[in-house]
C-alpha cells in the first residue's frame, strides 16, 4: 500500500459517501445518472467476485463490502425509494448503457492477462469502469443547475482514478515485475474522460460560479 493508492481509495470512498449523503439526507438524486450507478454496481460485482475466495487484507475486504453495498443501495434508492425516485431525471438519463456492457465483455474475452473466469471478469470490470461515467457526463450536459453535491461526487469519482495512476507509477518503479498494461490503459482512458469536466469544475470553483457543462 502507498499513499497514492490510500488517497485514491479514500477519495473513492468520499465520492460514495457524498452521493449517499445527498440521496439519504435530502432524498434527492437530481442530476445523478441511474445508468452510471447501475454500471458501477456491475463493475464491483464483476471485480469483487473473489472477495471471499482470495483474501488480500482486512482493509481490502472491508472496502470491497462498502463499495458493493453502497453501489447496490444507491441503485435501489433511485429505483425503489418513493421520494428519491421522483427526483430521478429519467427523460434525460437516456444513454444506452447496455450498448457498452457487451463490447466491454467481448473485449475482456479477447484481451486479458489470463483466460480464467476470475481474470476475464476482473478485466471486464476494468473496461466497464473506464466508460461507466459516460451516462453521468451526458446527463450533466443536459442538467441545467448542477447542485454542489452532484458536482463534488463526479469530481471525487474522477480524482480517485487519477490518484490510482500515480499509485501505478509508484509501484512500477518500486516493485519488480509490476506491469499491468490493461489496468493502466483502462485507468488512463477513464481519467481522460473526465478532462473536460475537470476543466469546467475548476473554472466554476475559480470564478465562484455555478458548475455548468456546455451541451
Amino acid at each position: 500500500m502507498n499513499i497514492f493508492r490510500l488517497a485514491g481509495d479514500m477519495t473513492h470512498l468520499a465520492s460514495v459517501l457524498v452521493l449517499l449523503l445527498k440521496i439519504h439526507t435530502i432524498k434527492s438524486c437530481a442530476g445523478i445518472s441511474l445508468k452510471t450507478q447501475e454500471l458501477y454496481a456491475l463493475v464491483f460485482a464483476s471485480r469483487y467476485l473473489d472477495i471471499f475466495t482470495h483474501y488480500v487484507s482486512f482493509y481490502n475486504t472491508v472496502m470491497k463490502l462498502i463499495f458493493l453495498g453502497s453501489a447496490f443501495s444507491i441503485v435501489w434508492y433511485i429505483r425503489r425509494h418513493k421520494l428519491v425516485r421522483r427526483s430521478y431525471d429519467k427523460d434525460h438519463d437516456t444513454f444506452r448503457h447496455y450498448f457498452i456492457v457487451l463490447p466491454c465483455l467481448i473485449l475482456a474475452l479477447l484481451i486479458h492477462e489470463k483466460f480464467t473466469f476470475r481474470v476475464v471478469m476482473w478485466t471486464f470490470s476494468l473496461y466497464l469502469e473506464a466508460v461507466a461515467i459516460l451516462p453521468q457526463l451526458v446527463l450533466l450536459q443536459r442538467t441545467r443547475n448542477i447542485d454542489n453535491l452532484t458536482g463534488q461526487y463526479v469530481f471525487l469519482l474522477g480524482a480517485y482514478r487519477a490518484l490510482y495512476i500515480l499509485n501505478w507509477v509508484y509501484r512500477y518503479f518500486t516493485e519488480p515485475h509490476y506491469v499491468h498494461w490493461i489496468t493502466w490503459i483502462s485507468g488512463l482512458i477513464q481519467t481522460l474522460l473526465y478532462a473536460d469536466f475537470f476543466y469546467y469544475y475548476f473554472q466554476s470553483w475559480k470564478n465562484n460560479v455555478k458548475l455548468e457543462l456546455p451541451a
Partner: peptide, 10 residues
C-alpha cells in the same frame, strides 16, 4: 496473491 499482482487493489 502473486507478488506485484494488480488484484490486490480495489
Amino acid at each position: 496473491s502473486r507478488a506485484g499482482d494488480a488484484k490486490d487493489e480495489l
